[in-house]
Every structure is written in C-alpha cells, then in structure tokens.
Amino acid sequence: MLNNINNKIEMVKASKLAKTFYNIIAVNNVNFSVYKQECFGLLGPNGAGKTTTVRMIYCFLEPSGGELIVLGKNVLKNPREIKSCIGVCPQENNLDPDLTVWDNLRVFARYFDIGRNEARARCEELLHFVGLFNKKDSRIDELSGGMKRRLIIARSLINKPNLLIMDEPTTGLDPQGKHQVWETIMQLKGQGTTFVLTTHYMDEAAHLCDRIVIMDKGDIIMEGRPRELVENNIGSNVIEIYSSDSEIENYMKSKNLKYEKTKTHYYIYVKGGEKELTEICERFGSEICSLRMANLEDVFLKSTGRELRE
C-alpha cells in the first residue's frame, strides 16, 4: 500500500537509508520522501552519493542499512515488482550498441513482457515523441550525444512508468538538447509522472524541481523548495565584488553584512541591496561591484563549500 500523508501519496520513502562500499560511506542514514506528481531533485558535488541513492531506488544496489520503500514496496523484498513500474535514465549511457535504435526499444519492451503488437505501437509513438523516428534504423554509434540521451529517455518510458528516475539527464548536452529534455520532462510531469532527478545544473533544478535536497559526503544537508532555500539562506540579492581588499571586509563587518569571501571575490548577501551597492561603489569604485539576483547556485556553494571534491 502507498502511504497517504496529508493527501500526498509517498512514491519513495527512505528512512535512515545507508550504503557502504567496503569502508567508504557513500550514503549516510538519510531520510527523505518523494510525493506523487512532484519533481524531486538530488543535488550535490561529485561523490556526494546521488547516484548511489538513485541506484538503491531502482533496486540496482541493495541498501546496507535503513529502509527504502518504493511505490509502497520494499526494495529488498519486491525488486521485480518495483522495477516493472519505474523508468530509469542512468548517468552512463548504456544503450545496446549491438542493436539498432528501433531494436533497442523493441528488445527493452520484451524485458517488460510487452506483447509484440503493443511494443511496435509503443516504439513508434516514443520515437516520434523524442524526434528520432527518422533514425530508427541507425546504429547507436551513429547517434550524437544528445540523440543518445533522448533515446535513453524514450527507452525509460517503454513501460509507462509512474516514477521516472533520471541521473544527470542533461549532462553534456548543448542548450538546444537541454531545453528539449526539459520540455520532455515538463510534458511528462503534466501527464502525472513523478520524477527523481539528479543534476549539477542549478538552473535545471530551479526550473524543473518542486523540491530539492542537497547532499554532501553522503549526508543530506539541506531540503526544501528551490525558491524558499534561496530566500532563507541567501536573501534576495547578491553583490559581487571583484576584489580581495581587506578594507572591504572591515567595512562589511562594521555594517553587519552577511558575506562570503573567496580568493578573488566577496559575495554579500542582501535583501534589496541598492543602498549598500551605492555605498560600496562610492567607497571602493564601481568597476568592481555588481548586483544580481540570488540563485540556487549561491545556496549550493554556501552549503557545500567551494573546494573541489576528490
């Protein structure tokens, strides 16, 4: 049975979910829920544990601790049933290079026990949907990166899934390809599909996701709606100052401003900011200052730090 909390149906429920590889803790006792018809985003730096988390959701990896319920079923007990109702776009391309575009879909439909005639209709419909019908007899290595991505999306829809899991669906795509994928996702969402999506692009998360969590080193460090996260953690605007002059820092301290310092920049988090901007410009010169709207990337960098991950 699916849990129904406040009229929100829980499609995924993770309680103290953990995964360890030998001595590496990839996912560390995380709790989260994904509700019906929402787009749930998993963000985090490289190695944060996003892929590991979604792999547990689609029953590729077994959790080493905690409980994971997907579509009302336990991933340890009913993986077959879960997998038959979800769609998966993995981070790495795993289209079948031995088969044509058409056969990739046809053979995949067979894994789901979709009958021959229905499969044919479904493959045709999906290839039109992702704009690859003209390529149906091509080999996989004749497709561009974006086409492969679209074919993977088509493949993940073959069983009409209720829950679609997408691990970095737009990584490596050009702006056209990215927007096409976004539109596809919006369309499917309109039809009632639930999404679990991982991404490194904050604009993508802000654009598509109703709710996000930010993971770091296996922990969830932040959770909420993109807008609210920005407002609560950053404010509405950011003044960027291209300078590392300590005078500026002293000034900000004296004014009690919220700011962050990097090797080359100061970032001041403000509500409106016009007044502060004028003052700073007057004191330190206007060439080095600019005011812009706060965004999710600010939240991300503030919460996970600016260092590269090993």
Partner: peptide
Amino acid sequence: YQKTFDAILSTPLT
C-alpha cells in the same frame, strides 16, 4: 564495455 547487463537490470529481470 557495453553495460548491457546494467541496462537489463533496470527492468524486471534479476
């Protein structure tokens, strides 16, 4: 190399 098994594992097959 082809990750064919990985792809199949996201379907009802074990």
